[in-house]
């Protein structure tokens, strides 16, 4: 086991994000005999998170706890990761393509003079080598990429590479490493939680998205209710954001977020090409729209032509009933 792959995990509100488990699975796909070294950073004790990481496939875990790692900064995390890289000389790094992953990995890649293939949705094997597949033009096309050098550095898009089954019987070392994190030029003074309620869009298995057809900010209420029943998140088209029905943070499309949930319910969305780019690779798409000619029906698996304010409440009831029937 000479090869080592680092998997940088993310802990949010004490829990490891699911995409970090998916990153372990991706690392195993890249090399099934490499040692998977998990790395977890934070402000307080991470031992139990480390054990969780091992149960999901990491062989051992290095944690770094420091008051300057309580909230993420590229400089703080960068110092810790670069010191670990220096010591372990891994053959590659895998991380989730999240807000932190996007912010941190280019810095590290730049420092290492390494390539970085970001937002990977699938990995194909070509003998021992890996080929990385990522969407371009917001999913209007895909590209297959490889590295010119031996060093591997990828971020993976949430929800695409399945995590391994949790195996509580796995054992491995969780060691805390002392690294002094200092001289930070950027400081996070405060975090204003706006997205705290509900599930994060990029990781949601189910998304209920509204468009101009929802007509008002109030009109989004039934969508939130439906999302809650489904354990999903609410998104929106640019039209709905421009009209101030909701925050730009919810926008899905070519500008905005690109999402690939298992179930995407488009409500009152006409289906402009820019919106389709952001969601058409969802596994199952349902469209609810008054206009039978709406473009969204061309990408939907199932369509209901009708008034959303009539359809959504019925749908909420029906799903509640079906859940009771199952449980």
């Amino acid at each position: 086991m000479s090869d080592k792959l680092l998997v940088i995990g993310e802990v949010r509100d004490k829990d490891i994000r699911n995409v970090s488990f998916e990153a372990i699975a991706a690392a195993k796909q890249i090399s099934d005999d490499a040692e998977i070294v998990g790395v977890l950073l934070g402000g307080t004790d991470l031992k139990s998170a480390g054990e969780e990481f091992i149960a999901y496939g990491a062989d051992r875990v290095i944690t770094v706890t420091h008051e300057n790692l309580e909230t993420y900064t590229s400089e703080g995390y960068g110092q810790a990761i670069l010191e670990i890289i220096d010591e372990l000389t891994p053959s590659g790094i895998v991380m989730g393509h999240t807000s932190i992953g996007k912010d941190l990995t280019p810095k590290i890649a730049s420092r290492l003079s390494a390539g970085l293939i970001s937002d990977v949705v699938d990995i194909e094997k070509d003998g021992d080598d890996s080929v990385y597949i990522r969407p371009i033009y917001s999913g209007k096309a895909f590209e297959k990429k490889t590295f010119e050098d031996d060093f591997i550095f990828v971020t993976i898009r949430p929800n695409n590479i399945p995590a391994l089954e949790k195996d509580g019987s796995r054992t491995g070392e969780v060691t805390n490493k002392d690294i002094d994190i200092k001289d930070l030029r950027t400081v996070v003074k405060d975090v204003v939680r706006k997205a705290s309620e509900g599930v994060d869009l990029s990781e949601a298995n189910v998304i209920v998205a509204g468009g101009r057809g929802v007509k008002s900010a109030d009109g989004f209420k039934p969508l939130y209710e439906l999302a809650e029943v489904l354990g999903g998140a609410v998104g929106a088209s640019r039209g709905a954001c421009d009209a101030d029905y909701c925050d730009y943070a919810l926008q899905i499309g070519q500008t905005g977020k690109v999402v690939t949930p298992d179930l995407y319910i488009a409500v009152g969305i006409s289906g402009a090409i820019q919106h389709l780019a952001g969601m058409s690779n969802s596994k199952v798409i349902v469209a609810i729209n008054k206009d039978p000619e709406a473009n969204i029906f061309n990408v939907a698996d199932y369509g209901i032509v009708g008034d959303l304010f009539e359809v959504i409440p019925l749908l909420i009831e029906e799903i509640k009933k079906s859940k009771i029937a199952v449980s």
Binding site: L116, E143, F297, A300, Y302, G303, E310, V311
Partner: peptide, 24 residues
């Protein structure tokens, strides 16, 4: 460059699905 693009392709065309009928 440190990385190389070896192929670009379009996603499979999505077939238009089923528009449901009958009472809401």
């Amino acid at each position: 460059a440190k990385t190389k693009t070896i192929d670009i392709y379009l996603p499979p065309e999505k077939e238009a699905g089923k528009v449901l009928e009958g009472e809401v």
